[in-house]
Amino acid sequence: MDIVYIVVNIVIFLAFAPLFEGIVRKLTAKVQSRQGPPIIQPYYDIIKLLGKENFIVDNWAFTLAPLMSFAAIISVICFVPLGYKANFLTQYADVITIIYLLTLGGVSILLGALSSKNTFAMMGASREMVTMIMVEPVLAMTFFVGAVKVKSLGIDSTIFSVMNTGYSWAVVLMMALYLMALQAFVGKQPFDIAEAEQEILEGPFIEYSGPNYALFKYSMMLKQMFYASLFVMVFVPFLYTGVYALDIVIQLCEIALVYVLIALVGATNPRLRIDQAVKYYAVLIVLALSAVGLSVYGI
């Protein structure tokens, strides 16, 4: 029966990720006094892209990249205990595997960018890589704060550590840091430095069109939803009811709230330069290290 949970995970993520993106776009527009697209616009976008002509560059890496990116994020989603239910796959991996799988998704974006031969794409790839390097430790330490307390790196025990052991100062600090890093995790302003439409024209994705671009766009949305849901699962577990379907509904509502936050921060902040962002991330890393330290001492 556990396998059903995996299917539920994938279906829910695939179904809701564009909706949340639509909410962000609508809200951003409202904040900036614009009309904005309908909430379901991202679905239209993907369907339209799937039918468009697919321009490719003459090497296999270019074609492989979007597929790998999508596959990587779907794999991550398979392992996630949505609705507080550990599934069949959870026992076969731990949080370090999750982190490395997310890296695989990042690598594919870089691979696609580099193989597209476009200078803007390379510029975007360089920025994407720097961002990845600097925010990955924050994600890792989100897990480790729980891991050192429950002495386990298992996905379920780490993610449910707050639910099982309650809030400590370390968790509160980590939660604040996660929120501060959230825009960078999901690649929204002020940290949409790698894509930066107005500046380097979607950076890594500049040469992509049609279904390839749809794959990239979809995997970006899924990644955003993954980070939003991770926040909900790790830090806000107090609405746990025990009924699977109800838990999922509650979590989706909470995820929607996280998206509202993402939209509001994104709509009101200008983009940072990459060197400014690096300094910001460095501060986050140092603070996160101290959160882990606090957690070791049980504070």
């Binding site: 799937l50 039918g51 560059v57 597929l67 596959a71 779907i74 040469e207 390839n212």
Partner: peptide, 26 residues
């Protein structure tokens, strides 16, 4: 296995629109 299955899913998804592919220099 998980990544490969996901890869197949990605491939199916990509081909679902029935779009044509064309090679063009950057």
């Amino acid at each position: 296995i998980v990544v490969s299955l996901a890869f197949v899913l990605a491939k199916l998804f990509k081909n679902s629109g029935g779009s044509e592919e064309r090679e063009a220099p950057t």
